[in-house]
Nucleic acid binder design. Structure first.
Length: 595
DNA sequence: CTGGAAAGCGCC
DNA sequence: AAAGGGCGCTTTCCAG
C-alpha cells in the first residue's frame, strides 16, 4: 500500500495527469471528531451551532488513481485546497465515488452553497461518472445495505479499516468492476445514466431546500394530544379494573384476554403473544367498549410520538427547516425511501392525522403545490397487459373501481353503491399486490370461498391481466428475476422454491415489482424533466418532496399558474403509454388544504 | 447501559 | 402453516 498525504501542488498535477489515462476515485467524508469523546453524541450541542462558520468547515478527502495508492487531504482554506476544489468542480475530469449525494451535500455545506447547482452557485462536485453505491444497488437492489464497507466485503471479501485512503482505493477498484457488470446487463447502464445517476443532484437539492414546519401549531397539538392520551388511558384502566401500560401489547393482551376474558382472535397470535393489532381490536369493539378506547389511545399516541413531538426536534438550527434524507438505494423496487425524518408517511387518512399535514407550510410569499399520479400502478397494469377492458376504460376516463364492481359483482353501473365500489377497489389493489383468497377475504370480511369467486370472476373479465400475470411468472421462473419497463432488475431467487410459502411470496413480488418499479422509474423521469425545466426557465420554484406517486413544490405566488401547467404536463407526458397518465394538482398554504 | 427483536402503525 | 407489494419510526422488552 502507498497511502500518503497530499501536500504539494506538483503532486496533485502528477495525479491529474495520470487521471487522464485511468479514472480518478474520490472518498469524501466529514472529519472524524479529533477530541474523541463527542462522537457518540447524536445531536450537536446547541452552543456550537452558532460558532459554526459555513465557509470553513473542513472536509476529509482522499484521491486514488492507481490501485493500492491514494493521497489524503484535509480540505480547508489553503491555496492547495483551492486547487483541489478546482479539480472537484471540473466537469471534464471524470470521477468515481461512493455515494455521490452525500459527497455533494457535504461539500455544499462546507462552502455554504444553498442551491447546489444553479447558474448562481455551481455544483461543488462535477464530473462524477461512477457511483459505486448506485452500481451495487442496480446490480442487486435487494441488499439492505450498499455502504462501501458492505460492498467491499461482499465483492472483495475485504474488511475495511476505516482509513479514508483505503476508501478511495477501494472505490476506484469497485468502480471498475461494477461498471463492467452494469454494462453487461441489458438496459441497466441506461437506467443508471438516464435515471438514477442524474437524479442524485436533484435529490441533493430537494434535501438542501427542506420544508417549513409550523412548530407553534405542533406544540399546541402536543398539549391537546397529551390530555387526550391521559384521559383515554384513565378510562381504559377504569374499564380494566387495574393500571397498566396500554402501550405494551403484552400487558394489554394479558388484560383483554385473561383478565377480562374477551375472545381470543381465531388465527392470530402466530407466536406466543396474542395479537392486539387493529383488526383484532376492531372485532372486539363489538363486545367491549375497551377495545375502541384502546384504538383511540393508539391513534393519539402514535400521532403524538411519531410526528407531533418528533418533527420539531428535526428542525435544522441554521435553516429553520426540516431536511429529510432521501435514500436512493433503500428499496428493492426502485422507489426512494425517506429518513430522519421519514416525510413519506405523514398522516392523511384521518381528520386528526390531516391536522399534522396542515403544519407543513410554505415560506411567506409562496404556496405549496402538490401533484400526484392518479392510480399509476393500475394504469401501468393496463399498459403491460393490454387488456381491452382496462385499456378502453382508462382511455375513456371511466371510473375503474366502478367498472370492476360492475364486472365482478355483476351489477349494472347505475346500481353500484359506495359499498360495491369500495370492495372493488380492494380487489383492484389486491391484483396489484398479488392477491390470495385469504388476503382478500380478510380485507373484505367475507369467507374465502366468496373471495375466491371474486378473483376468478375478475380474471374471467380481465383476460389480459391474467395473461400478463402468467407471462411475468413464466419469465421470472426462467430468469429468476423481474424487470421494469426501463430495465431495472430485481432478483427473485425463491420463484422456484419447493417451499410453497416462499414461492407464494416470490410470485406476489414478481407480479408487483414491474408495476411498483416502473411507477418509480416514471416519477423519477418526471422529476428529472421538471428539474431541468425549472433551471432552464430560471424559475424560483423548487421541488421539496417526493412521496412515491406525488411531488411537492414550494412555489412563489407569481409562478403558480406556470407551475401548475409545467408540472402536470411533464408528469403526464413523461412516456407514451397506451393509456393516459392523469395527474391531480393542488395548491395551498399548507400540505392539507390544497385546491 | 446498549443493541436488537417484536409488535404495531403511519404512508404509497 | 401461511396466506397482498414497498417502506421507516416508536415503544416495549430482554439479553449481554
Amino acid at each position: 500500500m502507498e497511502y500518503g498525504e497530499l501536500n504539494s501542488e506538483p503532486q496533485l498535477e502528477a495525479l491529474l495527469k495520470l487521471a487522464g489515462k485511468h479514472q480518478l476515485a474520490l472518498a469524501i467524508c466529514a472529519p472524524v471528531a479529533s477530541t474523541g469523546n463527542e462522537e457518540k453524541d447524536d445531536e450537536p450541542e446547541l452552543p456550537l451551532l452558532n460558532v459554526r462558520q459555513p465557509g470553513r468547515d473542513p472536509v476529509e478527502l482522499s484521491i486514488a488513481v492507481e490501485e493500492n495508492k491514494a493521497l489524503s487531504f484535509r480540505l480547508g482554506d489553503s491555496a492547495l485546497s483551492r486547487r483541489v476544489e478546482k479539480m472537484l468542480v471540473d466537469e471534464s475530469i471524470p470521477k468515481s465515488v461512493h455515494d455521490y449525494k452525500s459527497a455533494l451535500r457535504l461539500l455544499a455545506r462546507r462552502t455554504g452553497t444553498r442551491t447546489l447547482g444553479n447558474e448562481s452557485s455551481p455544483s461543488p462536485l462535477a464530473g462524477v461518472r461512477d457511483d459505486v453505491m448506485l452500481f451495487s444497488y442496480l446490480l442487486n437492489p435487494t441488499y439492505s445495505s450498499h455502504s462501501l464497507a458492505e460492498v467491499a466485503l461482499r465483492r472483495f471479501n475485504l474488511q475495511l479499516s476505516g482509513m479514508i485512503a483505503e476508501a478511495a482505493d477501494v472505490t476506484l477498484r469497485l468502480g471498475r468492476v461494477l461498471r463492467t457488470e452494469v454494462e453487461g446487463e441489458i438496459g441497466l447502464i441506461n437506467v443508471y445514466e438516464t435515471i438514477d445517476l442524474p437524479l442524485v443532484p436533484v435529490l441533493a437539492r430537494m434535501e438542501a431546500a427542506g420544508v417549513k414546519i409550523d412548530t407553534a401549531a405542533l406544540a399546541r397539538m402536543s398539549v391537546q394530544l397529551e390530555k387526550q392520551c391521559d384521559a383515554r388511558s384513565k378510562e381504559i384502566h377504569g374499564l380494566a379494573g387495574e393500571e397498566f401500560n396500554v402501550n405494551s401489547p403484552r400487558q394489554l393482551g394479558e388484560v383483554l384476554f385473561n383478565k377480562l376474558g374477551l375472545p381470543k382472535p381465531v388465527k392470530y397470535g402466530k407466536g406466543k403473544t396474542i395479537s392486539t393489532a387493529v383488526d383484532v381490536l376492531e372485532d372486539l369493539a363489538v363486545e367491549h367498549e375497551i377495545a375502541r378506547k384502546v384504538l383511540d389511545f393508539r391513534q393519539l399516541s402514535k400521532l403524538k410520538s411519531t410526528y407531533v413531538d418528533s418533527l420539531p426536534n428535526l428542525v435544522d438550527a441554521e435553516t429553520g427547516r426540516v431536511h429529510t434524507t432521501f435514500n436512493p438505494v433503500g428499496t428493492a423496487t426502485g422507489r426512494l425511501s425517506s429518513t430522519n425524518p421519514n416525510l413519506q408517511n405523514i398522516p392523511i387518512r384521518t381528520e386528526l392525522g390531516r391536522e399534522i399535514r396542515s403544519a407543513f407550510i410554505a415560506e411567506a410569499g409562496n404556496v405549496l403545490l402538490s401533484a400526484d399520479y392518479s392510480q399509476i400502478e393500475l394504469r401501468l397494469l393496463a399498459h403491460f397487459s393490454d387488456d381491452p377492458l382496462l385499456v378502453e376504460a382508462y382511455r375513456r376516463g371511466d371510473d375503474i373501481h366502478q367498472l370492476t364492481a360492475s364486472e365482478v359483482f355483476g351489477v349494472p353501473p347505475m346500481l353500484i353503491t359506495a359499498e360495491h365500489r369500495g370492495r372493488a377497489k380492494a380487489v383492484n389493489f389486491g391484483i396489484v399486490y398479488g392477491i390470495s383468497p385469504f388476503g382478500l377475504a380478510a380485507q373484505l370480511g367475507i369467507d374465502q370461498k366468496e373471495a375466491k369467486k371474486y378473483i376468478e370472476t375478475y380474471f374471467d373479465r380481465y383476460r389480459g391481466v391474467r395473461a400478463f400475470i402468467e407471462r411475468v411468472l413464466d419469465e421470472t421462473r426462467r430468469e429468476q428475476r423481474v424487470r421494469t419497463l426501463f430495465g431495472r432488475i430485481r432478483p427473485i431467487p425463491d420463484i422456484n422454491s419447493k417451499n410453497a410459502n416462499m414461492r407464494g411470496f416470490a410470485e406476489r413480488t414478481a407480479v408487483n415489482t414491474p408495476l411498483q418499479g416502473t411507477a418509480a422509474d416514471v416519477i423519477k423521469l418526471a422529476m428529472l424533466k421538471i428539474d431541468a425545466e425549472l433551471s432552464r426557465r430560471k424559475l424560483r420554484s423548487h421541488m421539496t418532496l417526493q412521496v412515491h406517486d406525488e411531488l411537492v413544490f414550494e412555489v412563489p405566488e407569481k409562478e403558480v399558474d406556470t407551475m401548475r401547467e409545467l408540472v402536470s404536463e411533464h408528469m403526464q407526458n413523461v412516456y407514451p403509454f397506451k393509456v393516459p397518465l392523469v395527474v391531480d394538482v393542488g395548491v395551498g398554504q399548507n400540505w392539507r388544504d390544497l385546491d
